Computed example of a mutant assay.
Amino acid sequence: MTAQPVLDFHVRLAPRPGARQRLLDALGECGLTRAVVCAGGTIDLDRLSRQLVTGGHVETDADNDAVAAACAGTDGRLVPFFFANPHRPAEAYRSRAAEFRGLEISPAVHGVALTDPRVADLVAVAAEFDHPVYVVCLDRPGAGVADLVGLSRRFPQVSFVLGHSGIGNIDLYALTLIQDEPNISLETSGGYTCVAEAAL
């Protein structure tokens, strides 16, 4: 039996020398065909963990240039996604969108709710370029899975990906919320096996 090709939909490009080669080596070692790559290092993990618990945000731009450069020349093995900063005009994404294959929006990093008009502006650009939109939700007003469902219904032509199997490690409720939403897929990194089994 031939194994099905596997796309890893959640890879971070570390802001370190040799990061691209390490990513390609890891894909090979794990038998993965392709990976969606977003910028890492936009916020340090200590601050991110505090923001997840207590709130807050940064207005730092991700290193989208490094992602585009790392993915170039990999014959599609590394798929570049633009990590948007909603504190910047949507034109910052539109002007670069042709270089990328999708969009990431992170309420945990930038602190902007999925119900915010700035997020809708970014998703409208994603619709123009037929880009999927990757989102990690939070247990916070405006950033929950129900808010992602609301956003997906406003943009039915856009494919959304719910990151990390929802909120926390064991969010079976997220599955209930998205099960009848044809344009939301589930990405399973960081979730418990029981959630992945329930999703299947």
Rank of each mutant, 00 (worst) to 15 (best):
T60N: 15
R88N: 15
D147N: 10
T33D: 15
P117C: 12
A98F: 02
T115E: 04
A39H: 00
V123Y: 14
T60H: 14
V136M: 13
V161F: 12
V109T: 14
V161T: 13
P80H: 11
R77S: 06
V67P: 02
G150L: 10
D46Q: 13
N169Q: 13
T60E: 15
V125T: 00
V135F: 04
F82W: 11
F100I: 09
V112M: 07
V79A: 00
V109M: 05
A69Y: 02
N85H: 09
R140N: 05
F100T: 03
A127I: 03
P141T: 02
D44V: 07
T42Y: 00
H110E: 04
E104L: 07
D44F: 04
D44A: 08
N85E: 05
R118V: 11
R47L: 13
A126R: 05
H131I: 03
V36M: 02
N169K: 11
S165A: 15
E99C: 04
V112F: 04
L162H: 01
C38D: 01
A26K: 15
G55M: 13
A70H: 01
A120C: 08
G55L: 10
S152H: 08
E29C: 04
V36K: 02
L32Y: 15
L52S: 03
F155S: 01
D44P: 14
D61V: 00
E29R: 15
L48V: 02
A127N: 08
A127Y: 14
H110Y: 08
L122M: 13
D75Y: 06
A26D: 10
S159V: 10
D147G: 12
A70K: 00
G28W: 00
V53H: 06
I43M: 14
R140S: 12
L32H: 00
P107E: 06
F160N: 06
H164S: 09
V135G: 12
R118C: 08
H164Q: 14
L148S: 06
V119W: 00
F129L: 12
D130P: 08
D61M: 02
A143K: 04
G73V: 11
L162I: 07
V135M: 09
V58N: 01
R101A: 10
N169H: 14
A124M: 06
C30P: 01
S152T: 04
E29I: 10
D46V: 12
A66T: 01
T60V: 14
V79H: 09
L148H: 09
H87Y: 03
A35P: 01
G28M: 04
T74Y: 05
V53C: 01
H131G: 01
T60D: 15
V53Q: 11
G76M: 10
V145S: 09
